[in-house]
Computed example of a mutant assay.
Amino acid sequence: MTATFCVTGARILAGKAFEDGKALLVRDGRIEAVLGEASVPDNVRRVPAHGALLVPGFVDLQVNGGGGVLLNNAPTLEGIAAICAAHAGFGTTSLLPTLITDRPEIRDAAVEAGKQALAAGVPGFLGLHLEGPHLSLARKGTHDPALIRPMTEADLAYLTREARDVGLRLITIAPESVSEDQVRALVSAGYVVSLGHTDVGAQTAAAYFAAGATMVTHLFNAMSPLGHREPGVVGAALDAGGVSCGLIADGFHVDPVAMGIALRAKRGPGRIFLVTDAMSTIGSNEQGFELNGRQVYRRDGRLTLADGTLAGADIDMLSSVRFVHERLSLPLEDALAMASLYPAEACGATTKGRIAAGCDADFLLLTPELSLLSTWIGGRCVFHATTRGLPA
C-alpha cells in the first residue's frame, strides 16, 4: 500500500500526548498530516484502527541478529533482510544491523551487504553499527579478545573512504584503541561515534566527547562504573549534555534501580534511549548459536557464554518498552519515546521516530494492553498479528 490513505479510529501519539478523534493521512510513504477525522477527504481510502494506539515505529541502534540469523555469521544482503523482517514483527521499523568484533574480511563483507541493503531498499534497514574491534581488553565482555585490536591508519582509511553508501554509520570504539584524532576523522566522514567496552576514567571520556563522540554503547555494561572519586564513563556520560546513552532494559544487564537513577540523573539535551542488543534468537525457537567459534546458550531470558558472561540480549523492543513502563513506572508516552524519538534524535535520523508531517510513515498499531497489531514501514504494512506476517 503506497497510495494515499488515512488511518482512522486510533488514539494517535503525535508529540508528547495521545490524541483522540484524529486521523493519520499518508501519501507516498510519508506522513502528510494528522487531522480531525471529520476533515478526511471523501475520496481517500480509510484504514480503520478501531481504538488501537497509533505510535511511532521503534528505532533500534544495536541489533546483532534476529530470526535465527546473526550478522557476524551471515554478513549478506539476505542476512540483513532476515534480521530486519524478524524485528518488524516486534515493532521495530528502523534498525542498525550490528557487527560484533570479528575478522577484517567479515567486516568488509558486512559493509558490502550494507551497501546492497541500502540500494535494495530493504524495509527497516537504516545503516550499520560496527561494535569493535577497536575496544578495550579490560572491558571486552563477550567480544573475542583475540580479535580486539587498535585502529590502524589502514582501518581508518577503509572506514572513511570505502565504508560509505551504507546509510547511517555508527561505530563503537574505546579510547584505549582509538585516538582523539581518529575520532575527529570518523566524525568528519559522517560517523556517529559511541564510546563502549572501555575502562577509561571520566576525564578521558570527556576528552573524547569533546573530540566528537556523542553516544555511549549500552550504558553501565562493559564500561568503567560510576564511583564517588572516579565517575568513570558512566558518570561522564550522564553529566555530558551532548551525549546520548543506549540502555538494555531486560532486567539482566542493568538493575531497574540503576535504570531509574540514570534516567533521573541524565543531563540534557542528550537522552537515554532503549536498545535491544538482540541476538539471532529473537523471532526464532533456537536455543543457542555460535559466535566467533564459541557457543552461546539461551536460558530463562538470558544469553551467556559457557562461563556465564552475558552475550547480547534475548529481548525485543516492544518488550523493552513494556519493561520500563511497568517496572520503572514511566508514563507510556515516555517509554515509547525511549524506543522511537530519542534514538532517532541520537543518530540524526530526522524523519524517523515521530508522527509528524513530512516524516516517514513508519508507525505501529498497538492494543491498549501493548500487544502489536501491525507494523508499517514507509506506508506499507509489513507485519500483521492476525497472520504473524504480511497481511493476506
Rank of each mutant, 00 (worst) to 15 (best):
L156T: 00
T172R: 01
A207G: 13
E180A: 14
L159A: 05
E180G: 11
A213Q: 03
L168N: 11
M151R: 06
A210Q: 15
I173T: 04
G190Y: 08
R184A: 11
V193N: 01
Y208N: 03
Y158V: 07
H197Y: 09
H197I: 10
T160K: 02
G196D: 02
R161W: 10
A211N: 04
E162T: 13
A189M: 04
V178Y: 01
A157S: 12
A189I: 04
R184N: 06
L170H: 03
M151T: 06
G190R: 08
D165T: 11
A174I: 05
V187S: 00
A213Y: 07
D165R: 14
I171Q: 02
R161T: 12
L156M: 07
V192M: 07
E153L: 12
S177M: 05
S188R: 15
A211E: 05
G201C: 14
S188T: 10
V200W: 11
R149Y: 05
A189S: 09
Y158K: 13
G196W: 08
V187N: 00
L156Y: 01
A174V: 04
V200I: 15
G167F: 07
R161Q: 13
D165W: 10
A163P: 08
D155R: 04
V192P: 00
L156R: 00
I173N: 00
V192A: 10
